[in-house]
Design a protein around this nucleic acid. Structure first.
Length: 561
RNA sequence: GCGCCCAUAGCUCAGCUGGAUAGAGCAACGGCCUUCUAAGCCGUCGGUCCCAGGUUCAAAUCCUGGUGGGCGCGCCA
């Protein structure tokens, strides 16, 4: 629609340039936007405002000249010059109503596009250490990351989702020591308790399971508990598998899965870490100091250099990170999006710097990042501290059990990632029926219930026939819905372009509101067959778009509530 | 001290590449179920868009400088 109007305006401007009203050398950027107020028509352009200076005439006068020069079109019913010089376009009824036909014809495909052109793209998200259960912050990452995947697929990208498992390194050593301490009956109060050990109760569960020689079946790991408190290596393998299994179960309950779980340990066993070190050394960006091996990341915009290999010979997390992203690049992902908590934002510069230091022509801004701000959890009016090493712990699983999967996902994805989020458990619980997700789902269920009612009454509805009757949709509420529906593909495209899934949530809230208003004001199953058919067609179109949008958020669209 | 993010109604937050009287939910108050699900609808109340400059025909939106908050600045991840 915008395209067609752009062409009309472009033609008009051409005419005016030919007539000498506009200088021939201006290259106008035609901007068309949807109006907020229906008295301003359906679409509006500010073109006269932007060109007034070049034309040397007042904006409203120029707007009039443009309107006069617009080619005739049956898309537009009326144009108006308003305010300081906007040109408002009122679309013809048939043009507005055509969206219903389009939605019913395209079904689940409505709103999808091919701007990604089938190119490969990877989204990495959650990537929690297997050192404890997933908490609310991981939940936000999971909700946003999974929605990004769905959104980018809808925009025509060939998306792979990936979870990076840090199953190597110091944190895992710490985990193994903590579990071992529990196996030996120690508590965090004991003097011999490992420094910075994980104190959470779940460590006790792991230890008990290990000592009882239970078997853990995780994604691709099958580990038997050895029951030997002195075998640290066996404890390590068992604990990692155990916690991985827990996380997998939580994510499954959350409706999130991954195409690939990438193990950090595999970078060591495959030799990728060593190869990366050698490459960096040979590129001349490294030096030794204080017994450690450093990478001169300051050459690539970092504010200080980084240690790659510690004086004890072990690598920091930084090096596997570089090796991992090198691996991603080699797998052919021209575009990679890392969804992470903002507390890790310092890795952005570092990883990119490391990749530049490889000298392998990886683009400077690669990979992309979406950083979500912190989630604060409130319970009984007080902040719940989330720390794996402390005792109190609110897991993602707790949240799913308490407020439900759909509500949790919606709540965590409905806000801009850049915005800090307060998750008030009492509110989520006590007012769960006021959660916006139910408002949207209820609208979907209502569209379905109308058709159920129709069937109960022995009525029938023929789609093709109904589409002939769209001219009957003349109520203001119906026009508002038509306009909203028409907006959907653009909302999806913009959300994918800007990596902002929350805008889908906002849109769905508005569409659901339009529908509820209409539903309350007018009966659909009226005696007038033409009107009834038309309203049912509109209702079905709303249902389809709600379902499509909810799917992008990973939230279910129930037919009944 | 340096870097990243944020500041909009009492609370939680939207506000698309700058656009025409700044929006929603919750909270408060008043209405609407013999009619397709009242998890709904309609109405009222409620805002110096943190402050000060600047750019522009036009700034909540862009720029600069402040103020306030979150996060980060490890041979942790």
């Amino acid at each position: 629609m915008k395209q067609e109007l752009t062409q009309l305006i472009s033609a008009a401007l051409g005419t005016l340039q030919g007539a000498g009203v506009l200088p021939a050398d201006v290259e106008p950027r035609i901007n068309i936007e949807r109006t907020r107020d229906k008295s301003h028509g359906d679409l509006a352009s500010n073109i006269a405002l932007t060109l007034a200076k070049a034309a040397g005439m007042p904006p409203r006068d120029l707007a009039a000249r443009i309107c006069d020069a617009l080619p005739a079109s049956d898309l537009v019913r009326q144009t108006e010059i308003a305010g300081p010089g906007f040109i408002n376009f009122f679309l013809s009824e048939a043009t507005s109503q055509a969206v219903v036909q389009k939605i019913l014809a395209q079904g689940e495909q409505f709103g999808r596009s091919n701007s990604g052109e089938g190119k490969r793209l990877q989204v990495e998200f959650v990537s929690a250490n297997p050192t404890g259960p997933l908490h609310v912050g991981h939940g936000r990452g999971a909700a946003v990351g999974d929605s990004l995947c769905r959104l980018l697929r809808a925009a025509g990208w060939d998306v792979d989702s990936e979870f990076y498992y840090n199953d190597a390194g110091a944190q895992i050593d710490n985990l193994a020591l903590s579990v071992q301490a529990r196996c030996k009956g120690m508590t965090p109060e004991d003097a011999a308790w490992p420094e910075d050990g994980y104190r959470g109760d779940y460590i006790v569960d792991v230890a008990k399971s290990y000592m009882a020689q239970e078997t853990v079946d995780a994604e691709d790991q099958h580990v038997d508990g050895a029951g030997d408190a002195d075998d640290l290596e066996a404890i390590r393998r068992f604990a990692v598998a155990y916690l991985r299994r827990e996380q997998d179960q939580d994510l499954k309950a959350f409706g999130v899965d991954f195409d690939l779980y990438f193990l950090e340990s595999s970078l060591y066993s495959s030799g990728a870490v060593e190869a990366t070190v050698e490459r960096l050394v040979s590129q001349g960006h490294t030096y030794e100091k204080d017994g450690a091996l450093w990478l001169r990341t300051t050459d690539f915009g970092d504010d200080k250099d980084r240690v790659m290999r510690k004086s004890d010979g072990k690598y920091t997390y930084f090096l596997p990170d570089v090796a991992y992203h090198k691996n991603k690049w080699e797998r052919g992902f021209g575009r990679v999006i890392n969804e992470q908590g903002a507390d890790h934002h310092s890795t952005v510069t570092r990883v990119r710097a490391g990749l530049q230091a490889l000298g392998e022509n990886i683009p400077e801004g690669w990979p992309d990042y979406v950083l979500h701000q912190m989630v604060t959890v409130m319970r009984d009016g007080e902040e719940v501290k989330i720390s794996k090493r402390a005792g109190s712990y609110l897991t993602l699983r707790d949240l799913i059990d308490e407020v439900g999967r759909d509500a949790t996902r919606y709540f965590l994805v409905a806000r801009a990632p850049t915005s800090q989020l307060t998750f008030d458990i009492d509110l989520a619980l006590s007012q769960s029926n006021d959660n916006p997700v139910y408002y949207i789902q209820y609208a979907h269920a209502r569209t379905c219930s109308v058709f159920r009612k129709l069937a109960e009454e022995g009525g029938a509805w023929n789609r093709e026939q109904a589409l002939e009757q769209l001219g009957a949709l003349t109520e203001e509420h119906e026009k508002a819905i038509l306009k909203r529906l028409d907006q959907y593909p653009e909302v999806v495209a913009n959300a994918a372009r800007d990596l902002e899934p929350h805008t889908i949530a906002t849109y769905l809230r508005e569409l659901a509101g339009d529908f509820h208003t209409w539903y309350n004001a007018h009966k659909m199953l009226v005696d007038d067959a033409a009107l009834r058919d038309a309203r049912l067609a509109l209702s079905e179109a709303v249902r389809q778009v709600l379902a499509n949008g909810l799917d992008l958020l990973g939230v279910s669209a129930p037919e009944q509530m």
